[in-house]
Design a protein around this nucleic acid. Structure first.
Length: 275
DNA sequence: CCTCCATCCTGTGGGC
DNA sequence: TGCCCACAGGATGGAG
């Protein structure tokens, strides 16, 4: 139920035709936590109302709407955020903390029970300091040499480093585990202890895992996990090789999948395939 | 700078 | 059935 890169990319693709070239005619922020970083709810309303979205981009798990007033509409779904596109007249689900209506009478909503998601509208200056986001893991994956430089000397577990959005933007707990499995590397290994071959394998694992996730429309742990504007659910769940499979058998070698806690996050791996 | 840890929230599912 | 607890896919800021 939490969006990682493939989920956010899926949402971006569905949202793009709805918002591109559209003027936002009415904007509401209904929860104080839905804006962050000293940005007040009223600022979001003032800055977004009347603006036209020229382009919808994604970097890591962030969505960026480029506006004709020079500012950027930033959205992050956090742990429990869903985006829906409906008629403004449709009943509001619980936890609808943000809504924006376009000049085509579509209402874009952020529904977010845990309120870890947020919306902001920022100036170019504010955008620069808004996130120290690393290169996108899907569209801008660094070379192995560059990854090796980033990992050199690091003692933190490779799993934690893969989750660090400043190094690489987009991997979350599910896909980090899947990438490590495909690369044959245990999540607990110190980042700096990986040899070049392992780093290259890690790099090579990222694209196929993420593109399979995007092709499947994301992962969904249940039908309400995140909903696409048209209400579909993602289909990557059945393709997971380790995540959430503690006690099950590895599809490749039959060994029982283990669960460990790394950096406070559940991590799943095959003790035989991953060393 | 790096690593580790707590924290922000609500909902759900398992065990009893 | 109800209650309680553990846990949830993320990001951040502070302590050491």
């Amino acid at each position: 139920m939490v969006p990682e890169l493939p989920e956010v990319e899926t949402i971006r693709r569905h949202l793009e035709p709805v918002v591109t070239g559209r003027r936002m005619v009415r904007v509401e922020v209904n929860h104080p936590r839905t804006t962050r970083r000293n940005i007040h709810p009223q600022d979001v309303v003032d800055r977004l109302t009347g603006a036209v979205v020229e382009e919808l981009r994604r970097r890591g798990k962030f969505l960026f709407g480029l506006l004709d007033n020079g500012m950027t509409w930033v959205t992050h779904l956090g742990m429990s955020g869903r985006i829906s596109v409906t008629s403004p007249l449709a009943a509001r689900p619980k936890h609808t903390h943000f809504a924006a209506e376009t000049d085509r009478e579509d209402e874009i909503r952020l529904i977010d029970p845990r309120t870890f998601g947020f919306v902001a509208v920022v100036t170019p200056d504010e955008l620069a300091t808004f996130t120290g986001l690393g290169p996108d893991a899907f569209t801008d994956l660094p070379r192995s040499r560059s990854l090796a430089n980033s990992l050199a000397g690091r003692t933190a577990p490779i799993k934690s480093l893969l989750l660090d959005q400043r190094l690489l933007a987009g991997l979350g707990n599910i896909y980090a585990d899947e990438v490590l499995n495909r690369a044959g590397v245990r999540p607990t290994r110190p980042g700096g202890a990986l040899n070049y071959e392992e780093i290259a394998r890690l790099r090579r694992a990222i694209k196929p895992i993420l593109s399979a996730g995007v092709a499947a429309g994301g992962t969904s742990l249940d039908d309400l996990a995140y909903s696409l504007p048209d209400g579909e659910a993602g289909g990557y769940l059945q393709r997971l090789r380790v995540y959430g499979r503690e006690g099950d058998h590895c599809r490749r070698c039959g060994t029982v999948i283990k669960r460990v806690v790394v950096g406070g996050r559940s991590s799943f791996y095959c003790p035989t395939c991953q060393t």
